[in-house]
Amino acid sequence: MSVDKNVVKKISRLARIHVSEERSEMLSSDLGNILNWIEQLEEVNTDGVEPLSGVNEHPLAWRDDTVTDGDITDKVLKNAPEKAGEFFVVPKVIE
């Protein structure tokens, strides 16, 4: 089984990963094989089974509403590939 190349195109676009024409060929069979293998899950009867997204059993702990962080502009910007003054910089975005 292979995944439709248009699907590869769609998901690589969603994931913002450029995929060349030739890699797309390879990926469609790669992903197809993996998904095919994964589809054995269909054998499992999951009727009425509540999905499990995490194993924690304690309740979510809440933080106090105090300002304990921020004011570290230098640390925030330190690793940026491009910055101007106190801003991050990206290629112009047109809405």
Binding site: V8, S12, I17, I34, L41, V49
Partner: peptide, 25 residues
């Protein structure tokens, strides 16, 4: 890409949700 696929519209229930159910089992 696999993860993006599994979460994307139309595949979520068949893959991600199914996997979460199997996880509980």
């Amino acid at each position: 890409l696999i993860g993006t696929y599994a979460l994307s519209a139309g595949y979520y229930d068949a893959y991600y949700l199914k996997a979460q159910q199997v996880r509980r089992l």
